[in-house]
Structure formats: C-alpha cells, structure tokens
C-alpha cells in the first residue's frame, strides 16, 4: 500500500513540478506585484498599496468586465448548442466515420492559431466576396464592414473554442447507454422529456467539462478581440496588455490579472465541488437499477 503511494507521487512529480514552477510561482508573483507601488518608468516602487486595484471601482472597468463576461458566456452557450448535435452524430456514427470526423476536427490545429484568425479577417474583409454578396443582396451598405464589431469577435471565439466543446461532449456521449432512452420511451416518456431527464443528466460530466474548457479560456481572450474587434471591442485581456505595455504600470496590470485568475479558479473550484456531489448521485443512481 505504502509503495503504491510512493510510486504515485513519483509518477505525478514531473507534472506537479511543472505546475509549481510555471504556474503556481508566476501566479503568486503576479498577485504580490498587484499590491506594490508603481514607478513612472515602468518598474515597481518600494512599499505596499492597494492603488493597483483602484481601477476596479471605475465605470469604464465595469463596462469591460461586463463585455468580457457577456462574450465568454455567449461563446459558451453557442459552442454547447452547436457542439451537441455534432457530438451526438459522431458518437452514434460508424467507427470509420467517427475516426474520420475526429480527424477533421483536429486537423485545423495543424495550422497556427494566428493564421486561422487571419483567415477570418480575409473571409470577413470589407472588400471580400462575402461582403460583396451581402451588399448585392442589400443586407449591408457599401462602406459597411463585417469585421471589427462584437459579432465578429463572438464568431471567431466560437470558431476557436468549438472543437474544445465537441471533444468532451463526444467522449461522454460515446459512453452513454442509449438503451436508457429506449427504456424511457417504452415507459411513456416523450422525446423532449427523455432528452432532458435521461440524456442530459447522463452526460452532465461532459457538459461541465465542455463549459469549463470554453468559458475559462474565453475569459482570457486577448488576440481575437485585438484582431477582429472594433474600437469598442476590448476585453479584460486587452486591458491587461495596455496596463503593462503602454501605461507601464505593472501593479495595475497585475491587479487585473489577479482578478482574472480568481475568475478562472472560481469556476474550477465549483466544478470540483459539483464533481464530488455528482459522484454521489451517480453512485446512488447506479445502485437503484440494480435493486430494481
């Protein structure tokens, strides 16, 4: 028993060390800097203060925070809604088609992320084909642009994070026993009700994972709003970049980063909590059919 534990520790050591050195320690440094004073040349001045957090009370910050949360939330919702039918189709398809579809989902990752965002800039270009078609149809003005608005940011966010939503949904749906739905239907439950009451709870772990892997990175988006967002499309990540690079105010940048870290860790903690309580549910449910 003891040696098993020791080998477990030894096995997890590399990843643990990696996390401590490249995640924990830098995060702690960021949190510490957020409570320091700044000096005008971009460094850290001696002494401690809450000045770094002074932004948080301002109205302009509230607007950016609201936009960040709104866009991340919408991205998550759209991703789940689009990913769900795809994942169901994949899980129920023949193995050959399944593998092909998986490959198709992964292939875009072979191309650099930035290049894919640039591709969107070309597709939505104000002198591009799509715009010309919409103009001919009369849906958009001559000088109008499909780029540089919140819609474009949402579109590219969804495009970017969709595979991350499909994959966990697919794995949990693949494990789901579809005979349960047949059983529910046999017992008189309608299609909508069996979907809501049997299917969704059955794949809840997959849904929670999908929400996490979309919502958390979307909160920290920086490149996408920077490239396809308009003058009013800033998200929290862009504000942090501005604080560090142009305002040369490390404590303020760190204070915003600290908030973002909190915002990211909080859902993670909630997920942990849900997982624990859900585990009980799952165990409980498994027992009941056995008893019956």
């Amino acid at each position: 028993m003891k040696s098993k534990k020791l080998s477990e520790i030894r096995l997890s050591m590399p990843s643990l060390l990696w996390l401590i050195i490249f995640f924990m320690i830098p995060t702690i440094i960021v949190v510490i800097i957020s409570f320091r004073n700044s000096n005008p040349s971009g460094g850290i001045a001696p002494g401690w203060s809450l000045h770094g957090f002074s932004d948080i009370m301002s109205l302009s910050f509230a607007a950016i925070l609201w936009r960040t949360i709104k866009l991340s939330f919408l991205t998550t919702i759209v991703c789940i809604f689009v990913a769900m039918p795809v994942a169901i189709f994949m899980a129920r398809a023949e193995e050959k088609i399944q593998n092909l579809l998986l490959l198709l989902i992964v292939i875009p990752f072979w191309t650099n992320f930035l290049i894919r965002v640039y591709a969107w800039k070309i597709i939505l270009h104000p002198e591009g084909l799509l715009k010309k078609i919409l103009y001919t149809v009369g849906l958009i003005g001559e000088h109008g642009s499909l780029l540089y608005n919140e819609g474009a940011v949402l579109l590219v966010l969804v495009y970017t994070y969709l595979p991350f939503a499909i994959l966990p949904l697919y794995t949990s749906i693949e494990k789901f026993d579809f005979r349960l739905i047949e059983a529910a239907r046999d017992l008189g439950s309608g299609p909508f009700r069996s979907f809501m009451k049997i299917f969704l709870p059955g794949i809840s772990q997959g849904i929670i994972s999908a929400v996490m892997v979309v919502f958390i990175p979307a909160l920290g988006s920086y490149v996408i709003p920077d490239m396809v967002g308009g003058p009013g499309g800033e998200m929290l990540g862009n504000k942090i970049a501005q604080r560090v690079f142009t305002d040369r105010n490390l404590p303020k940048g760190s204070a915003l980063s600290t908030l973002l870290i909190l915002a990211v860790i909080l859902p993670g903690l909630i997920r942990l909590f849900i997982k624990k309580s859900n585990l009980k549910d799952v165990l409980f449910k498994r027992k009941t059919p056995g008893v019956q």
Partner: peptide, 20 residues
C-alpha cells in the same frame, strides 16, 4: 514623457475605450 502625469492620459484613454 509625462512621468506621473501619464495616468491622466491613461484615465482618459480608458474612458474613451469604454464609451459606447
């Protein structure tokens, strides 16, 4: 380089960026 007064500009800039 405005040194400490840079913050005056940062504040205006934040407000411009956040304005509807």
């Amino acid at each position: 380089d405005l040194g400490e007064n840079n913050e005056l500009y940062s504040k205006i800039w934040d407000e411009v960026k956040a304005a509807k």
